[in-house]
Computed example of a mutant assay.
Amino acid sequence: MKDIFFDLSVRSVRLNFLRSLLASIGIVIGVVAISSMGMLGTNMQLQVKEQLSASANTITITPDAVRMSPGTTASTGIDKTQLNEIKEASGNNIVIPIHRSSTRFTVGSTNGRGSIYGMDPNDITKFLTISEGDSLNGESDALIGSTLATNLGIKIGSRLKIGEDNKSVTRPVVRVSGILTARGMTADGVSADNAIIVSDDWYTSHFGNQDLYDQVNVIVQNVDSIPDVESAIDEKVNRRTQVIRISDASSRLSNISSTLGTITTFILAIGAISLVVAAVSIFNVMMMSVNERIQEIGILLSIGTEKGEVRRMFLYEAFILGIIGAVFGGICSLVIGYSVVGAMIGSTAYFFLPESIIYVPEGMLIGVIVCVISGLYPAWRASNMDPIDALRAE
């Protein structure tokens, strides 16, 4: 059965189309803000999850924070004894000790900065992939991360001077023998994309700490055995006091996801502010509609129209404004969200996954609800007018 009150609402929106459209723009902006930011946060989490899953079989072991009394100093690191205990507790799994530091370097006339890792050349290919060139053949050979190579134009055969530019000291030089495949964010504690990889002998001869490692990675053969391996290492090395920290992809993913979730929630809260502004605009439009149609309301009430029917007529109008804003906002969210995700993350591979795209209908639904809520008071006010006073209004 045709609802005449819905037709009256459509007529009101059509007669005041420009005003209604301008009011709906606020809803469009709110829907776009919530949907786009929600999709951006979700895509970030999905990409991080996939990147970390690439090193899901790696346990990362680092020295615990040193507790020192005032005026005392100590070197931090995993010593030979602890390394042997880790190897013993790890069983048949691969154990890779790693030296790590941050350094400045010069290639040609260009200065750069990155991480430098020292490790056994035989261990490198166990978890890193070389895209160009060869592994470490000579003592002064080095592997370069893909990001450093791209940004600084480093090629196979390029020579890098390691350390600060100091004329009184001859800086050591390494020759680039290979360029590593891009890895992105990983859970194994090795940021290879911005790194220089050298042999452990070369590293310790120039940076020291020959028997003190900054990190030890354990690559397990069976991912399901990670908890057991971690427990065995902890019991073996931390038996008296905690001297090492043990983490894996799942713990890192949990921490990163929690951080990204907090950021996403904060961004969504900012986007929701635009919906509050839109709600005020819709409320204003609805109040104007009520004031302009006082005599019409008086006639409807005087001929026996129920108060609920009058309320429904104005709620219909608010609902129509919400639908208009939500539909346009949903379409714009797909276009703008896709562009934002591509620009901020560099990949839209996860954009159309259910976890991401769900923000569009959710944003549209929120937009419609905000409009209907904004129309509640104007609808109530219209339905509670005195018919005689309404008919006298000019």
Results as ranks from 00 to 15, higher is better:
K2I: 15
E317F: 04
V13Q: 00
M37F: 15
I144V: 13
N137S: 09
N137E: 10
F351R: 08
L22C: 06
E362S: 09
A343K: 05
R113T: 15
A65M: 10
S333V: 06
T60L: 14
D64V: 13
R159E: 14
S146R: 05
L143Y: 07
V176T: 08
V48C: 03
L212A: 06
D123M: 09
D214A: 15
I282T: 04
D64G: 08
Q295F: 12
E355G: 09
M344E: 06
L260V: 09
L40H: 02
G30W: 01
M185E: 11
T170F: 10
D193H: 02
K126I: 14
T262S: 15
V173R: 07
I323G: 00
I324Y: 01
I144T: 05
D234P: 02
D224E: 06
P70A: 10
A192V: 00
S168N: 09
T170P: 12
M364H: 03
V327T: 13
W202I: 10
V372R: 00
N84G: 09
R11P: 00
K236F: 05
S258G: 15
S168K: 13
T106H: 03
R183E: 14
L136K: 06
S168Q: 08
A393F: 12
G337C: 07
V370E: 01
T348H: 02
G26N: 03
L315P: 04
I388D: 09
P63R: 04
P63L: 02
A272S: 15
N238G: 08
M344I: 05
E235M: 10
V341Q: 07
A195K: 03
P121L: 01
L22H: 03
L315D: 08
R14Q: 13
S374A: 15
V372G: 03
S102G: 15
V341F: 04
N151M: 11
V13A: 12
N93Q: 08
G308Q: 07
V174H: 13
W380R: 09
F352T: 13
I273K: 01
V360G: 02
I297S: 12
I320H: 05
Y203C: 15
V10M: 11
S53A: 15
K161Q: 14
A318I: 07
I226K: 04
A382F: 12
Y377K: 02
S339F: 03
F17G: 03
D134E: 07
P227E: 02
S69W: 08
V277K: 01
I226H: 06
N57K: 10
A279D: 01
I197Y: 07
S274M: 02
L136N: 07
A74D: 09
I179P: 00
T129Y: 12
D134M: 01
I59Q: 08
D234T: 03
I27Y: 01
G133D: 10
G41E: 11
Y117N: 06
R252A: 13
G153R: 01
V95T: 07
I331W: 01
I357P: 00
E235N: 15
T125W: 02
R175L: 00
I320W: 04
A149Q: 08
E292T: 11
G133H: 06
I263E: 08
V107F: 03
P97W: 06
M287E: 02
F105I: 04
F17C: 06
S257T: 12
I369V: 15
G157F: 11
S250D: 12
L152R: 10
T259G: 11
I59S: 03
